[in-house]
Amino acid sequence: MKENHPDNPLLELKAVTKVYGRGAAAMPALKGIDLAIFRGEFVAIMGTSGSGKSTCMNILGCLDVPTDGKYIFQDMSVGGLSRDQRALVRRHFLGFVFQGFNLLNRTSALENVELPLIYRGVRPGERRKRAREALAAVNLSGWEAHTPGELSGGQQQRVAIARAIVSHPEVLLADEPTGNLDSATSRDVMNLLQRFNRENGITIVMVTHEPEMAEYAGRRIHFTDGLIDNGLMKRGR
């Protein structure tokens, strides 16, 4: 896949709806979202609980497909891709950070960070080197051999960030990355994300409840009941 035209958005949702269940139990979670995110942006998605933020993130992350509407990633429509093709998009272009860290238990920090490189087919020596560098970038040098159970919440989330950026993704998607952390630790994590956005040019989309964390982003989007609040899509920065 080639890079998209610089004037086109990197990610674009066009009239995206998502309905869970069918018939009488049908539950619309997204009711027509238009959203464009450009390369290099740092976008925070905010909104009340149940407003559809995670649903939107799953679609942006190619983990789910819209019920209706279009999702265009790098000038390519995701709706027409198979399950495995979406897996390849995730493998090569996306990095994820979850609220619950989602690290492999009983597996060292280093091996957790190596995981995306394994699926990319990077050779073991190179893999190890890049995983160490990623851990160093999140200030976790010396913790390589520790398993998640032996790390604090903040450290675990930093391992998760290292795992997300180790493959140099185009986009980093973070659903409430500070949801399980205290505010000091949260600020550490946000500083890291901001640094990767500014220094490495990684586009970041982040869901957060905390206005303080949203301040780190270049643009804030508000969800209300399956819709984007202002409907305005100004270019950030």
Partner: peptide, 13 residues
């Protein structure tokens, strides 16, 4: 959960 992580990271079926 491990399977979920692998799939999210881009493991093929």
């Amino acid at each position: 959960r491990e399977i979920g992580i692998r799939l999210a990271i881009g493991a093929l079926e």
